[in-house]
Write a protein that binds this DNA or RNA. Structure first.
Lengths: 353, 353
DNA sequence: CTTACTCAAGTAAGCGCTTACTCATCTCGG
DNA sequence: CCGAGATGAGTAAGCGCTTACTTGAGTAAG
């Protein structure tokens, strides 16, 4: 639009070289106060703002970090009312980036163009936070050769990438122990998400840990599997019930959506929750507190994950030789009524809304 | 990380000039198929990906669009469970940008650094979508001299900016007419948001339109004002009730949060909704359908706004001389039970969840 | 056999910064 | 008074692309 001025013009008008202007703009040293003031004044006067492409070309850094996540649409049909996982992560990431003076570029990997997109984004940023599920392991490794990458919400299987994850295992351990100890239940069934999902596996592992720790024998494998969705939960529950002669005392679901589907399936069969069967979920989506009964579940620190991932990434960018970091963020059990508790209270640091 | 190859190396290895490589990469013309294949092959072989800073410096375009919005935190205390307005807009914007092969940079204007941030983002992108409320009119005009800007969810008062807005007025008109015609109510009170808010004003105007069209006299000004929050709605309602000898037949709120606060205030006074007073909101936040009674309200096409704004912006970038565009997207009334309707149904194109 | 195009491709001048070097002064201890 | 540092500032070579302009060969028309 407007005729933009360049560093040359600023330099000329303030009677210094471009090097000095550049130094002043970067708050470096090697100039007097008088010079600084003069340069700043003419810059302001001209309305000059350094061209970002030029400076990032010369300095080899862009001051932008990228965030890659799976297509939004994947979640759309699940619960478009809850702030999606990615929404919260984006908010956290934006906050952390902004606090460090960086900008954030976001991109959803949709369909097959994952790697292409990743490269395209990678060429625009200093580093990438990749939400697990956006890229295959092979793609991840390719991209990470090009630019620093932090994996979010998953743990890299073989690569040496930095990662930030939530403590799925401990969260499920806590909720299982609650059923075992507080409610004195012992016949617990586990309805898992997709068997390839690392989250699902970790959660099942936490469930088993708790059983073992409580002196019970843990099952070899989950009692049923399904997609991490409402309908996945409903059909897995139907399957579970048919496969057993009697109802379990509790059904522990791999996530909230499945638990919601399970609740519907149980209701359809005239089973009362929590009187006949206790139910728990995982994630603490918005709907969890609007259900009847309200859902006992585990909350993940989603926004915090986003912030942390960006911080880890920025540290990695600053020092590529630093030791690798893998952070596991704590989760919090949220006790409501589906587990059999009467009062709504929770073991968290925040109030229940 | 890895030693990156440059266009020079690709050119040398495939025995052509850099100009040809560049042409091939941009799918231009002026080269034979054989040459194209050769170039593409060596590029792949070398794992070469054009440096984005260099190409945007040379071509004067970045292929990135920016999205500026007010600080997330502003909304945090309102209803962190509903997907925030900005979340949906971000999703829409990302989708539209990605569909056009552009990337999207997001930034929240927090505190006083609005203009500074805007300039910083502006220097990294080809154009900016600015969510109303992120920048003052003066800042907006400054930034728009530098880079194309589309205002989202608001209409520029004096500038000639392109904008995309939702039809607040028609939405409120519809819901008011519903109270007037379907429910045969005539004594309606209006509880508005902040008086400087353009949205609030438009909504009040729609309310007045409907009254007038229905043969009633519209009030000069809203019956009460408050912040667009739950507590704002509660106190405005208290105020309203105290100022009147009798309850109105209906209270039309400027948005859902206020209506929720109003519902609580009415309940606290033992007023039954909708039996004694009908209530309506605006926005259709997630909580609206979980309330008792469920809230009759108006839905805004938030995601679509984000998409449209980016599309308008891209068109503006492509043709700076094109006539100015101002789009007003339709809103949809969502009838639930707080207005007095028994059945939950709605006048929308989507199903009610 | 010219003339006039068309087509494939090359030349090289930027784009607007950053920064390694270099240089001229100035300061100050010995 | 001299030499060693410090300090303030300039020189100029990139950074890795894009693109206006040019070139030369092939080709159709006259």
């Amino acid at each position: 639009m407007i005729e933009r001025s360049t560093i040359y013009e600023v330099a000329r008008r303030s009677g210094v070289s471009t090097a000095t202007v550049s130094r002043v703009m970067h708050e470096g040293s090697g100039f007097s106060e008088a010079t600084r003031d003069r340069v700043l004044a003419t810059a302001r006067e001209l309305g000059w703002i350094p061209n970002h492409s030029a400076s990032s070309l010369a300095a080899r850094r862009t001051g932008i970090v990228g965030l890659l996540f799976p297509e939004f649409g994947v979640y759309d049909d699940i619960d478009s009312d809850s702030p999606l996982y990615v929404d919260l992560i984006i908010r956290g990431a934006e906050r952390a980036a902004s606090a460090a003076g960086n900008a954030i570029l976001i991109a959803a990997t949709r369909g097959r163009r994952g790697l292409e997109l990743a490269h395209s984004v990678a060429s625009k940023v200093d580093g990438l936070v990749v939400l697990a599920g956006s890229l295959s392991a092979a793609e991840l490794s390719l991209v990470s050769q090009r630019v620093p990458v932090v994996l979010l919400a998953g743990q890299p299987r073989r690569s040496r990438l930095d990662f930030v994850d939530a403590d799925n295992r401990a969260g499920m351990h806590a909720v299982t122990t609650h059923l075992l100890s507080t409610h004195k239940l012992h016949d617990l069934a586990f309805v898992a998400g997709p068997s390839r999902s690392p989250d699902s596996r970790e959660r099942f592992a936490g469930f088993c840990d708790a059983l073992t720790a409580g002196g019970h024998r843990a099952q070899e494998r989950p009692d049923a599997h399904g997609a991490f969705t409402v309908s996945g939960g409903a059909s897995a529950t139907a399957e579970l019930i048919e496969a057993r002669s009697a109802l379990p005392q509790a059904i522990v679901y791999g996530n909230d959506e499945m638990a919601i589907g399970g609740l519907a399936a149980l209701r359809a069969r005239g089973v009362s929750v929590p009187r006949e069967v206790a139910v728990t979920g995982f994630d603490d989506i918005a709907a969890a507190r609007h259900m009847h009964p309200t859902l006992t579940t585990v909350r993940q620190p989603m926004r915090e994950s986003g912030e942390t991932a960006v911080r880890v990434l920025l540290e990695r960018i600053a020092d590529r030789e630093a030791p690798r970091r893998g952070l596991v963020l704590p989760t919090e059990m949220v006790i409501r009524t589906s587990c059999g508790c009467r009062r709504r209270h929770q073991l968290t640091t925040e109030g229940d809304r």
